[in-house]
Amino acid sequence: MGRKTFVILIITAAVLSASIIFSLSSGSYSLRLDEIIRTLIGRGNPLSNTIVMQLRLPRIFIAILVGASLSTAGCILQSILGNPLAEPGIIGMNSGAALAVVLLISSSSSAYYDSIGIYTMMLLPIASIAGSFLVTALIYVLSVKKGANPARLTLTGVGISAGINAFIALYQLTMSKGDYNRALTWISGSLWGSNWLFFGIIAPAAAVSIGFAMYNSKLLDVIRLGRETAVGLGVDVDKKQKSLLGIALVLSAASTAVAGNISFLGLMGPHIANRLVGPVHIRKIPVAAGISSVLILLADTASRTMFSPLEVPVGITVSILGVPYFIYLMLKEA
């Protein structure tokens, strides 16, 4: 690990901190920086306490978590699918989550409110995790034919998610406006309503999975070189591929559970990191995570302040920012 990587890590961390401060200090209730600092060290008034500690801070932490998770999932997928443009959202991992959420909202909107407290809050996240797992399993099964060919996996994912979208449309069109908007916020990806409880539940899963990916970074490097090379080096590619895909799925499902579908984040971070520190995963994963976190933080800050009192789901903002970069990549690398 060279000096350059170290410097870049420091810079990424600095930019991330600056983004956190920027995000902490923007919102429709204006707080000065010194008020925020006073609140952070426990000397704020009750109102600033709620706004900083219960609204902005959990949202920022979840944004960082989601950015890091999706970015790491992107790194893994790009390596095991041998496709530099792979990403959990685009290859359809999240479409199952969207379907589950739409089904839940449209089928049981009254029953859903009968139970009280923690369960109703957790129902959508749980449904979305279940949906992600089921649909990813389906994609995997459908694409297995003498092993899981990466290109086939990608295309099957695209096809399945296009089909699922048609089903989602069927339900969406008959929903009430309120239900529809809830579903849309979720499907488009939003950090709206983030709280510490979600953070507490998702953080361990994300941390363990990212740790696992870092631990296996050598393996990711080898698989990225291609199937033949990896087999030649004595790697049981099929088996490793499955477990790495599983990790990517956990990361993507965890972020989808709290933030809905956010596409492109898993693409942009890894690519920018690739250009800064090269393709070696032990360097790439942390830098990519930092960059994706910065991106989602800034996008989210824009989403919640730009059209206040309305919010644009952050996933939409990320897509609008991310696609031009994606197109640029296509044109450059094709």
């Binding site: 496709n83 443009l85 792979a86 959202g89 685009i90 290859i91 990466p150 290109a151 990608t154 295309l155 695209v158 849309l184 488009s188 596409s263 492109f264 644009v312 789901p313 996933g315 939409i316 897509s319 609008i320 696609v323 031009p324 994606f326 197109i327 296509m330 094709a334």
Partner: peptide, 22 residues
């Protein structure tokens, strides 16, 4: 590459639908 082509299309589609959603 086929999958690259399709991913590019999916990305474009997502982009325009995102703009329309906004």
């Amino acid at each position: 590459s086929i999958s690259r082509f399709v991913l590019a299309g999916t990305a474009l589609g997502t982009f325009f639908i995102s703009l329309a959603s906004t």
